[in-house]
Every structure is written in C-alpha cells, then in structure tokens.
Simulated scan of single mutants.
Amino acid sequence: MNPAACFSQTYAQARQKFLAACAELGLPVESQLHPLRGAEDEELAIDVARSGPLDAKHVMLISSGCHGVEGFCGSAVQVALLQDEAFQRQARDASCAVVYLHAANPYGFSWLRRWTHENVDLNRNFQDFSQPSSHNPDYPGLHALLIPQRWPVTLPNRLRLLSHLVKLGRKRMQKAISSGQNSHPDGLFYIGNAPTWSNEAVRAIISQHASRCQHLVWVDIHTGLGPKGHGERIYSGPANSPMLERARRWWGEGVRSSQEGQSVSVPLSGLMVYGAVGEYTPSAFTALTLEFGTLPGPQVLDALRAEQWLHNNPGAGEPRRQQIKRQLRDAFYVDEPQWKEDVLRQAREVVRQAISGLNQETSGAQ
C-alpha cells in the first residue's frame, strides 16, 4: 500500500476516496447531508459505513474530522484500514463490527476551518445545555489579544500575550485558550449555546450503531498537538476509572490521561466521544483520542488566530485569504511522506491492539 495515496488535498477528494474504498468492499454508506455547500460547491455529509453485523457484540467506531481541517489525517487512516485485508480479517475473527464515521464536521473539513459552520468547537459542544455552562474566567481577558482588529499582529500584541503567559503559566494559559469558552461567539474554542448540526447527527449515528453492542471501542483521530509525527494516545475520561485501566492494558502504559495532567491536552469537557454515547452507553465502553503532532504549538495557535480573524473579517482580500487558509491546513496536516507513513503505522497499531484487547476481555470473561 502506498501511504500517500490514502491522503487527499481537499475534502471532496477525501470523501471520494472514502466512498470508493467502501464500494470496493461492498459496504453500503449512509450519509447525513449537511445543510450548506462546500468550498468547491460540493455536497457536504457525514458518511458512515459499517463492516460487520448489526447484532455484533463488539463494535469499534473510528471517527475523523471532528475538528474539520484535521480530517485529512483521519480520513486517510479510514481509507487505509478499509484497504487493509489483515485488519478486516482480524476484526471478523474477533466478531467485532467496525464503523467508520467519516468527517464529523464536513463543513470545517471543506472550508479549512477547525470549527463548525456555527463557529463552534464540536469537541466542546457535547454539553447539557439545560444547565448553566461552566465559565472560563481567563478567556475574556485574552480575547482581544488573540483576535485583534488587524492582522498580521504587531510586536506589542505578542509581548502582551507573552506577559499573560508569564503571569498564568503554560498550563493555565493553554487551558484559558483551549478548554472552551461561552463568552465570545466570535472567538476561539467557542462551545456554543445549543447542540450543533454535527452534534445531533453524530448522536443519531451512535444510537443506530452502538446501542445494541456489549462493548463499544471508539478511536477518535485528531492532529495539532505534540511532537511532529508522534501519535499520542490520550484517555480523557474519569480518573481512576476501569476504562483507564483497560486502555493501558490494551495500548500500554504510554496512554496519557488529560484529567491527570499527563497529556499534551488539558482537561476538557463536552467531548464528542463521551457526550455522544450518553444514554446509549453499552455495558463496556473504551475510548481513545489518537492525537498526531504537526507543528510547534505557537505556530498552530497563530494559524488558528489568523483564520478566526479572517472569519470575522470576510472582506479581507483573496491573496490574504488563501495564505491564511493554507497556513491553517499546514498546521493540522503535514503534507510530507514520512509524516504520512508515521500516521498510518501508528493508527494501524492502535486499532489492532484494540481488537486484541477485545479478544482478551472476551477470553477472560469465559
């Protein structure tokens, strides 16, 4: 298999490769159509394919594109696994159905945004909006610095952000920016005030594919944090949970818990992999975020800031728009052969370890 052939340059191309790989296996695809069109005036959709019976005891869900532009990586992983005969055989032998959820946020994927069309971070949006949302006290003081009126930013702007970093410390600063906020709808990492279109679509998919199984394994693929090419295995559920113990049995002691402060990610709420399961939680649930590093953190943040400024200033000229969009794509998708090889190798290892773990759990229960 040529790793580069699994990757795409646009959402439209990625979707076509995914649909073609499903067709090659004879897998039917169900599509949740998005209400808007894409950057190439193409149809946008969350596409779902399932390999394995509807009454399978075990289900592995592999999802891509929660954060839009990060979908280039996750889509390629899904295409590679659909073409991996050894993985398909291993899943069948373990009586494990595999569900491929392609492009949870197709709008962001196509338009090169991390956020949904509502300007919401989908991975902070799985909240109970009937309850008061938690306030992020540090974000309001940073918003005007993060998204200034003019772009590119000035040296004084960078110095003021640096002073906040010194004052708050690295972890608190990261939490202030990225943990989610409900005070500025035109800002970064906005959680929204209601479930987004993608939120409701993903919940419906989980209800259909995971409500009848005994054990759901969910691998959600992301990019943008950590060393270039390294796939950090992140557990984001409750600390001291049997799920954490199980994750480390399956994937090794290298599994990092964001809740315990070990991960490149800060503790988060409103995550898709936990919020979407909700009332449909099977008797056993194991979730892992697979986060692939791209560029250094300051460059990734600068790309997000620039793109949000562009979104807030739609009258910016076309050359600047193209430059900022390319900057964002490069921050979440490293278009280099070695990075692509590293991504597919580590992703295959993770899903195969999960199948082996399910086998061990089943054997131990007998």
Results as ranks from 00 to 15, higher is better:
36 L>N: 10
349 E>V: 07
177 I>R: 13
223 T>K: 03
320 R>Q: 15
125 N>C: 06
32 Q>W: 05
322 Q>C: 15
255 V>R: 01
337 P>T: 04
363 S>P: 01
57 K>C: 12
81 L>C: 00
301 L>E: 02
114 R>Y: 11
366 Q>F: 07
3 P>M: 07
267 P>G: 12
296 P>K: 06
168 L>K: 00
319 P>H: 12
348 R>Q: 11
310 L>F: 14
99 V>Q: 07
339 W>Q: 00
204 A>H: 06
286 T>R: 05
298 P>D: 14
246 R>P: 00
53 P>Q: 15
211 S>C: 09
199 N>A: 04
41 D>W: 09
67 H>S: 13
3 P>R: 03
142 L>I: 11
122 L>V: 11
132 P>F: 03
254 G>Q: 14
186 D>Y: 09
68 G>M: 04
288 L>H: 01
267 P>K: 07
106 P>R: 13
193 N>K: 14
170 R>S: 13
61 L>D: 01
159 L>D: 00
209 H>T: 13
87 F>G: 07
171 K>Y: 08
218 W>E: 00
242 P>D: 11
49 A>K: 03
140 P>C: 06
166 V>M: 03
268 L>W: 14
123 N>G: 04
259 Q>T: 03
360 Q>W: 02
268 L>K: 03
189 F>D: 04
19 L>V: 10
325 K>G: 04
101 L>H: 08
103 A>C: 02
358 L>V: 15
296 P>E: 15
130 S>Q: 14
160 R>S: 09
168 L>S: 12
58 H>M: 10
187 G>M: 02
90 Q>F: 11
25 L>A: 01
20 A>N: 07
122 L>S: 01
218 W>Q: 05
324 I>N: 08
361 E>N: 05
231 G>I: 05
221 I>H: 02
304 L>R: 13
111 W>K: 11
295 L>R: 10
314 P>R: 13
295 L>D: 14
365 A>Y: 01
88 Q>K: 15
346 Q>I: 13
304 L>T: 08
97 A>V: 09
11 Y>C: 01
119 N>G: 14
142 L>D: 09
357 G>D: 08
135 H>I: 07
203 R>Q: 08
251 W>L: 08
299 Q>L: 14
339 W>L: 00
273 V>A: 01
286 T>F: 00
341 E>P: 00
184 H>R: 10
327 Q>G: 12
160 R>F: 02
172 R>F: 09
